[in-house]
Design a protein around this nucleic acid. Sequence first.
DNA 1: TATTTGATGATTGCATGCAAAATGATGGCA
DNA 2: TGCCATCATTTTGCATGCAATCATCAAATA
Lengths: 225, 225
Amino acid sequence: MNSTFGLQRQPLHTQVAEILRAQIVSGDLPPGERMNEVALCEALGISRTPLREAVKILELEGLVTIRPHKGAMVSEISLRDIGEIFDLLAPLEALGTRLALERMTAEERTGILDLHDRMIGCYEANDREGCFQNDYRFHNTMIELARHDVLRATHTGLTNRSQRGRYLAPRFSQPKLDEAMAAHVRLIEAVRADDIDAAAEIMFDHVRCTGEFVLDTLRQSNLAK
Amino acid sequence: MNSTFGLQRQPLHTQVAEILRAQIVSGDLPPGERMNEVALCEALGISRTPLREAVKILELEGLVTIRPHKGAMVSEISLRDIGEIFDLLAPLEALGTRLALERMTAEERTGILDLHDRMIGCYEANDREGCFQNDYRFHNTMIELARHDVLRATHTGLTNRSQRGRYLAPRFSQPKLDEAMAAHVRLIEAVRADDIDAAAEIMFDHVRCTGEFVLDTLRQSNLAK
DNA sequence: TATTTGATGATTGCATGCAAAATGATGGCA
DNA sequence: TGCCATCATTTTGCATGCAATCATCAAATA
């Protein structure tokens, strides 16, 4: 774990935060789960100090809720939270799209076009999971290409939380998936035409629409509060 | 402070984080200042554990930079950072304006109109400091009225960082101040007319313009890197 | 029986101690 | 003189210990 020359040049609390973050985002640690310090420490093979530091970090990220003297638990994820997160993601991804189109190189441009094609490939092959994976990568790549530290940091914080909805809402309905894919196609057309305004607007609507849909699915399945 | 039955049930690390945050935002702790753990602990009269937890929190907020095994320092604030922060603030405050206009009550509406009048009063009395104070309150109030937790949290994180520019750029030029006040007047007109789209757009341009101006001032004074 | 009080065990919050890493200084060698 | 190696000091990172707080439950009282 430590080997492969990557060595161990990361503090314990950072590594612990990464591990716990991954487990929470993936739903491995379910919402509401109590996080007993000593139990987690034994499981991770560390002492309470770095664990507590990690938990504080996750609290600020909105993944953990701490009540003083009562302990930490995995944050509940409410419909309202998810809706609010997408409220912010829409304008932020629109901004990211705008910047990415302005700043990306020709190679990066072909890279993101490839990513789109791969996603469409999965879509046409009815590979929903592949579709999601590539969609996720597509949006993240777009933000990366914006070369904007504050945007990236804010975006990852929000997507980490929104991703928690995924495991609650496992199935997109076909019409909504069709709609999302159509939006991506239109977006790529705007990218090819270098129409920044159009691309930003399409992205805004697409993210907003995705948010609406996640909310609908959650409301149906009744899994979140 | 403790009284009125609300008692004093706040953990040490939270209080310490608040104190340090205030000192950093106000410029009391200048950018680049090394934060020696034992020195700070003695100054605050606490042990290293809660201090370290507080510093971790401030790191995630972007106010502190930690290099492993080398210690923490107050984050440098770069021109690029400030520009990026305003890049996000513009669309977020526009969103906040939109939501606030939709959701605020009649009393809240008169409250924010009063706040505006007070600011204009300071402006006409050439009270720049009062102007800033009320402007700051105005924007914060607008975000509060949006009743949107994720927006509020993100917004405070960003303004805490942008505020650090204030002490670097103490003087707005008169023309820019005039421009900002004019924008506020137009914004309030839109509020009175209940024209949500117009208000959001004016707010967007206003924040963006403020960002541009802070950058200009900083570039002149050559205080930030 | 229902409600409250007291005691016990578990859990968190903070302080302290110890080992590893980094910084700075000193001395040897070219 | 200049450079590198080595060692001492400082500082951080993590582990552990102790006190304060909370949760649970049984006993006592109305």
